[in-house]
Amino acid sequence: MSYSALALTLIFVLIPLLLSKTLKLGLEIDTIIATVRSIVQLLAVGYVLKFVFDSENFLFIILMVALMIGAATQNARKKGKEIRGITWKLIVTFLTIEVVTQGILIGLQIVPPTAQFIISISGMLIGNSMVLSILFLNRFASEIEGNRDETELILSLGGTPKQAIHRQLINAIKASMIPTIESQKTIGLVQLPGMMSGQIIAGADPIQAVQFQLIILFLLLSTAAVTSIMLGFLSYPALFNERMQMVRPKKTN
């Protein structure tokens, strides 16, 4: 696609701008910022990826993945600032997902160990894992806040922190996994996944595009489960101290 053809697609940015202006939604500046940022960021990533792919240097691949994990951690940690050591818990979670999934994919020769595959798949996995982490941390925080009485009751009766937080933890894990499972149920019927569509538009055989998409879907399913469960079990101990008390106790007089 030429840059002039790409420029024409800015019509699709003009539409929301005009609608926002007409209906006084006040979203014009945000829309312009989002457009400029997406152009700059994606073009920059495109050039960086071209450089990394051409260099065939494994160190650059590791640097790219580290950058993704760093950015994902930075974004997700804001939702879990109440949890001690959340930064490291997120890094360990993302790193585990990356190592386990890439280890299986490359180890079983499902995909070749090239920069194209490693970086593209890592981006999808870590991105998905980041969204899952944010969903989990949001839900976990509201579960804890909404069920303090029950947590305190179980502790007061001689339960362990794990017993006291178990129901809230399971609720948060399930709630964060449901969107991934539900979206996979309707895939192909309601929506064609972006990666598959991209491959087909670029001229790939649709069956081959579907095969790659299935790999990604299965990976995302695994990522969803590992992210929520791992982050959950790494996070809950930080809510209690060594005397099995809630670190932020319910306010009493």
């Binding site: 029950e150 009751l153 502790l155 007061s156 001689g158 362990t160 099995m244």
Partner: peptide
């Protein structure tokens, strides 16, 4: 009590809080 095991302490000195929830 700081030297007692927390679970043992909580079973020894049981508490019924105002509006204790039913599970």
């Amino acid at each position: 009590i700081q030297r007692m095991e927390p679970i043992k302490l909580r079973r020894h000195a049981g508490i019924v809080l105002q509006n204790s929830p039913m599970i």
